[in-house]
Design a protein around this nucleic acid. Sequence first.
DNA 1: ACTCAAATTTAAAACGTTTGCAATTTCGCA
DNA 2: TGCGAAATTGCAAACGTTTTAAATTTGAGT
Lengths: 347, 347
Amino acid sequence: MPARVITLKELAASLDLSITTVSRALAGHQQIALKTRERVAQAARQAGYVPNTAARTLVSGRSGFVGLVLPIRGPNLVDSFLGEFVTGLGEGLVSHGADLILATAAEGQSELSVLRHVVESGRADGVVVTRIAEVDERLAYLRQRGFPFVAHGRLLDSDFAYNWLDTDGAHAFGEAFDMLYDLGHRHFGLVTISEPMTFRHLRQDGLAAAIARRGDPSVRLDVATAPRFDRGARIQALNKMLHGPERPTAIVALFDELALTVMEEAARAGLTVPRDLSVIGFDNVVASAYAPPGLTTFDASIRQCAREIADMLLTIIADRPAEPLTRLIRPTLVPRASHGPAPLTRS
Amino acid sequence: MPARVITLKELAASLDLSITTVSRALAGHQQIALKTRERVAQAARQAGYVPNTAARTLVSGRSGFVGLVLPIRGPNLVDSFLGEFVTGLGEGLVSHGADLILATAAEGQSELSVLRHVVESGRADGVVVTRIAEVDERLAYLRQRGFPFVAHGRLLDSDFAYNWLDTDGAHAFGEAFDMLYDLGHRHFGLVTISEPMTFRHLRQDGLAAAIARRGDPSVRLDVATAPRFDRGARIQALNKMLHGPERPTAIVALFDELALTVMEEAARAGLTVPRDLSVIGFDNVVASAYAPPGLTTFDASIRQCAREIADMLLTIIADRPAEPLTRLIRPTLVPRASHGPAPLTRS
DNA sequence: ACTCAAATTTAAAACGTTTGCAATTTCGCA
DNA sequence: TGCGAAATTGCAAACGTTTTAAATTTGAGT
């Protein structure tokens, strides 16, 4: 017995009122007599009336949805980022009665085309964009379209203003350097990726800036670069760094996954962390707590960030502020056991 | 210069055709002259025409969305389940042109009320339901409503038929027992939760069945139970098991998170895994690979399951099959280093 | 050139809501 | 009792699409 969904017309008929009046009563308009409003509310509740989203969207032009185009992911990429992120978005949205649409790019389809579809089909009132690339056509499109959005991440050349929330990776990497420097480290390694993501530059620049700020010419920085998803190449680049004539005493990884590889390879090379080598990551993934001896890293509280992004986006949709909204979140250091004083002697 | 979204009326006018013809041409109806169809397709592509979702939904009664009510999660629960699951759903949906709606329950709001809202507002053509409870009002509601859905998980008493996909936890736990028994273990521990989730019973029953099947009266099973999110209680129950006069030589945990706690507490108690104690989990979370010595567990390939759930649901929405669709997925053992032969002597 | 069927196109209704404007009711006050 | 303003309610259009039923055009056969 599939209970039929009740419509406004039916509800109105049952109350012997016009559709208009019922609609207004439910919307709480003052012009409707209080008594009527109560009567309608009561009947609606009792009948389990829920307004039809499509009809409402059609006439109001607002869908009550926020869109997120799922980042394309490798076949066996397992991390908690997405879960954290959508949970946070959901939490931020629900308090304003909004919901989330997740659109996936099909094989061979660009994220941009999915984004266009979401925007132009009127499915969403705004979108959030993650993993900003150096040259990001999605942002260009959204700007040109004048469509409400918030980016999780920043462009490098901010020659155009837009709404973003970002983790202050530059600050974190500066903090990591300072901490390691104070522990006596002078020879540093940076493990990074070759993809043109802006967060990579921001973090690396933060590290470089901290080094420059210190003004110590004896500080040395080696860099190992490999494609994000090419584990073999990563290990190779890493081992070159680890087995060179002189190896760094402290390695900073662009993010935890890389740092975990560093710790594995260090162990394989017979190095003890942190006695022979300090390692610091970024993201605070779950495995970082379990990988011995416990990875020192930075926590960016994705879920909280996502919640704020939702708030920002809803503000933008509702108020269309003239000035762009921006938030820079400082990640917190999670000190565990993978960093320590620089070894006194070196082989 | 926010480019206006083009409408069917405008497109029709620019082609000097009626709305009807353009609509049919785009839908590929044979009755429209081939030449016209091509002309329309060309113009639509060039003008970047995208049909309005709300209007289409309103008239067709199909939204092209599948709904998922986000499970309510603790404040700092970090896992990859949700990310895997929505990624898989997205992948399964996109090939049929469907998208995913994520609805979140607000503080103090039940999952059921959110589900009702999603269903009755016509936002979605079908929904997927996860984490089935022993008595699950969501399933009862959906059935009574006759609304298309697929459950990830099973009810215990299948007195009513419905569509589900489940991981064969019973089989896995039986497999774990057999393997450990063959390694000489006779005294087992089971670490479980107190929440009324059906997967708990299925797995426990699978273990019990395997024990019974073996018919060896010397086999002994201790059970430690604690609330899912109460880490303190969990540790307490665990230590009672670990520090009793006789402790198990092998512990099977309901899922990895519990197994990881077991390994931590074992280490704290001075036990070496797997020499003194074998541990087996379920889920294959990322941390399981990193937690020394590497947790032996079962992989349920959430992402793949979610993809199949999406396929099932779309079939149900399109064809309304008379018989319910069901799939039981056998998880694969991921042997790592946390299990081994039973110790010969016992303290 | 004429007929009739086939091919192609179109007008108009419908989906369920919101909202501008107009109609109706109520009520205080003369 | 009658008047007018204020309070309350309702009519009808609009949102952008799909679809039914009907109208128009085309073309083959005579």
